[in-house]
Amino acid sequence: MTVLETERTAPTAGATKDLHTESPIAAPAEPQSRNHRKYLLFALFAFPNLLLIAVFAYWPILGNLLLSLTDWDMISPFPNFIGLENYTALFTDPGFVDVMRRTLTWVVAVVGASLVCGLGMALLFNGGARGTKAVSTLAFTPHVISGAAVAAVWLFVFDPNYGLSRLLFNAIGMDSPHWTTDPDMALSALIIVAVWKGAGFVAIVYLAALQSIPRDVIEAAQLDGAGRWKTFSKIVWPLLTPTTFFLCVTQIIGAFQAFDLIAMMTSGGPAGSTTTLSWYIYEQGFQEFNIGSAAASSVFMFIILLVVTAVQMRFAERKVHYS
């Protein structure tokens, strides 16, 4: 509201100023005052957003760094400074090493499977058979749906007593696995759901990239007698590399932060078998209130993702140089 009002009054203020500054001496100063007005306008337009970004995106990074050097329970008035103790405790805790190993498995499996399934679907969709559009839209749908809802549906599908899983496994003469209560299965169950939710998005992005490949490039290759596989591996796949790389990075960032599926389906269990870094941060921070430890884990996650993004940016830059 205030932005609008100020904007409305601004021209009048400027107009009166113009009347008073008719003397030749004042003339050179005029562009500067107009610039100042524009500065003010810039500030009015941009600063609310910039302030929000500063407070809710940048301050947390700095604050995490500071809190990670303390031992705090969220209640006592002042955190205690304990140096790097939280970090040494994390990296010497075999439990945390397990969390990281599990996180890595999760990220690699989710991203890998989403990309493979997504690319497969995109190639199929690119064939343009009738009904493609409906199916591709269908595949994309889970991407826009609440993770909590997707998790609830799959929790029911996986239910070994009343779920679809019992139906399917009984049909082949087996008992359904206990998907979410068996620590050997739980992470796989989550991976299936995450891929189900995310592969459609990957497919659509790949499809857009496939369709931006000029057709004559492919036709030229085929005229040279290249088979389907050769055309794909020698022409299409290299042309898709920037897309693949971009998808890798965004999917990795997403997978690292996956939370709603885990919260709804397993709460990090059973026996910690689905405790990834993102759940660990939540558990330490908001269930056990080891704020220092949660902050140190957050810093760790931030650094990992920063490196991932930096690698992508370096790559993107090189790409520009080559082309």
Binding site: I53, W59, P60, G63, F256, L305
Partner: peptide
Amino acid sequence: ALMVPGHVTLLLN
């Protein structure tokens, strides 16, 4: 700010 993962900001926010 695009590079700041939301999950990392939870505690401080």
